[in-house]
């Protein structure tokens, strides 16, 4: 759909706050708050499309960039204003500790998050490839006018795309809140990593993004282990620079 949501990290931050407050106020474990975060963020994505994106879609590229970038600044500042800059932590989530997979120790929440990511990926992929609506969504992304001529309400498809994307980040935020502290700027690093991952895989290519996610994760861990933890992100972003310079369409290309 040729538009990048620069507020994706802030969406993640909001999802983490949903999980945190569900725990702090409602004594709900993040795992139970997950559906709540998915629904809340999907609604936010839908509202963002209708309230902001559709008004700048026909405009110049810069207007589109500034619109979501401005939304990011607004959400970050809003979170700071409402909830302060303190780091907040969900204490004693159901899933804690770690398990040994052969010689490797993996945190149980992290393991649960990977499994959930895999499930979300499979669901999204099947939806896009198999369902009537999923194919219509792809068609809209590939050629909006031609899709409209098939009888596809492309405005609804865009809104659905935003709701889906934000809903996925809602799940990610709830899972992340199990093992990562929550604060207004938490989205920054994760959003950057998400852009690196998507660019690495190729925009619009769902399975390639999964593969790229694994690559980014491995690079991050091994750079931290073999070089120094302090520069692990530098190595990831170097990889990103290399991709942008030599293979701007991503490792696997579009679709």
């Amino acid at each position: 759909m040729e538009i990048v949501n620069f507020a994706h990290g802030e969406f993640l931050m909001l999802a983490m706050y949903v999980a945190f407050f569900a725990w702090a106020l409602g004594h709900l474990d993040p795992l139970l708050a997950l559906p709540l975060a998915v629904l809340a963020l999907a609604a936010l994505g839908w509202a963002t499309y209708h309230g902001l994106i559709r008004w700048v879609l026909g405009g110049p590229m810069l207007a589109q960039i500034f619109a979501t970038f401005g939304l990011a600044v607004f959400l970050r500042a809003g979170a700071q204003f409402l909830w302060g800059v303190d780091f907040r932590v969900v204490q004693d989530p159901w899933l804690g500790g770690r398990v040994a997979l052969g010689p490797v120790f993996v945190g149980l929440p992290q393991l649960a998050a990977s499994v959930a990511a895999l499930v979300a990926f499979l669901g999204l992929w099947r939806f896009l490839a198999r369902s009537e609506t999923g194919v219509a969504l792809q068609a809209t992304a590939q050629d909006r006018q031609a899709a409209a001529l098939m009888g596809v309400d492309t405005d609804r498809m865009y809104a659905l795309g935003w709701a889906l994307g934000a809903g996925c980040v809602g799940a990610a935020g709830a899972l992340l809140a199990m093992y990562f502290y929550v604060f207004p700027d938490v989205g920054g690093t994760f959003a950057l990593l998400a852009y690196v991952t998507v660019a690495l895989g190729g925009f619009g290519n769902v399975p390639a993004t999964l593969a790229a996610g694994v690559v980014v994760g491995l690079v991050e861990v091994f750079a931290g282990l073999l070089l120094a933890p302090a520069i692990k992100y530098a190595v990831v972003f170097l990889l990103y620079l290399a991709i942008v310079l030599w293979r701007p369409q991503g490792l696997f290309g579009r679709w």
Partner: peptide, 24 residues
């Protein structure tokens, strides 16, 4: 009327340069 409604009224439109969905 919006395009997605007009096709339901019985008007088909094949655009210039075919405009197939390239990756479907």
């Amino acid at each position: 009327l919006p395009a997605h409604r007009i096709v339901g009224r019985g008007v088909g439109h094949v655009l210039e340069r075919r405009r197939l969905f390239p990756y479907l």
